[in-house]
């Protein structure tokens, strides 16, 4: 589904160049939920923007369905970290969710149905007429997720979507993502700096190093399909996995110094 082959990106900073991502290679299979975790500033956003076709790589390439990404690939949805700013304040919630559907050749009724269904899935049923700025941060992020869901993407890219919401909302949103993923059978790449979150959500966790960033480790999360905020998180298997990820990140930080 998604293949990243030797991808790298340099930024030009006053005269010199800063290597944000050195060289990364990995694959994500159809229907997988993969978490990418790494310390702040290690190039997670840079990586996601290259996969989404929003930023050209300096080296290497990303492929979606075997085709090289040279612009946003069809059938891909992105949920950004800055949820509040990714919604359009001049559109009500319904219009925000509907906008990407307008070019899909659907009838008005079909679009309405998809919007209503997506809002129901994120627990915002009937909020079509509300303005985004009347909602709390967690609700705004759910609108952004509903927009992605209504679009029915094959690949969903998420960049630290819950970094700025409170703990309880965050737990709810994590369960929502797992629920949507298993229900819709889409491929999800979920970026986070939160170790617990990466283990709780993913089937696989990719750990990035500090810049210049490479792939530090790959950890399979054998927690099974049914996860529960309380039980899963308090079990010994979870503790072992999070310790493994934690060790890799610590080593990555030291390696980067």
């Amino acid at each position: 589904m998604l293949e990243v082959a030797g991808i790298g990106r340099d930024y030009r900073v006053d005269g010199g160049t800063h290597t944000a991502v050195d060289s990364l290679s990995f694959q994500v299979a159809e229907g997988e939920l993969v978490c990418i975790v790494g310390p702040s500033g290690c190039g997670k956003t840079t990586l996601l923007r290259m996969c989404a076709g929003l930023l050209a790589p300096t080296r290497g390439r990303a492929l979606v369905d075997g085709r090289e990404v040279d612009g946003p690939p069809e059938g891909t949805a992105v949920v950004f970290q800055e949820y509040g700013r990714s919604l359009f304040p001049w559109m009500r919630v319904g219009a925000n969710v509907e906008l990407p559907l307008k070019r899909l050749g659907l009838t008005r009724g079909e679009r309405r149905n998809r919007v209503a269904e997506a809002l129901r899935l994120v627990d915002l049923e009937g909020k079509e007429r509300v303005w985004p700025w009347q909602l709390s941060g967690g609700m705004q992020q759910r609108v952004a997720i509903a927009r992605a869901v209504a679009f029915r993407p094959r690949l969903l890219l998420m960049d630290e979507p819950f970094a700025a919401v409170d703990a309880q909302t965050r737990a709810d949103l994590e369960d929502l993502i797992r629920d949507l993923w298993s229900r819709l059978g889409i491929t999800v790449v979920f970026i986070t700096h939160d170790i617990d979150e990466s283990v709780y959500l993913g089937q696989r966790v990719l750990v990035l190093s500090s810049p210049p960033t490479t792939l530090r480790a790959e950890i399979h999360v054998d927690l099974g399909p049914d996860r529960d905020q309380l039980e899963t998180r308090s079990g010994p298997a979870f503790a072992k996995l999070r310790a493994a990820v934690w060790r890799e990140i610590q080593a990555a930080k030291r390696g980067g110094e």
Binding site: A52, L54, V78, F80, S86, L99, R103
Partner: peptide
Amino acid sequence: VQLDTAAAYR
């Protein structure tokens, strides 16, 4: 971010 959103959804 709004331009990125517009671009990502083509």
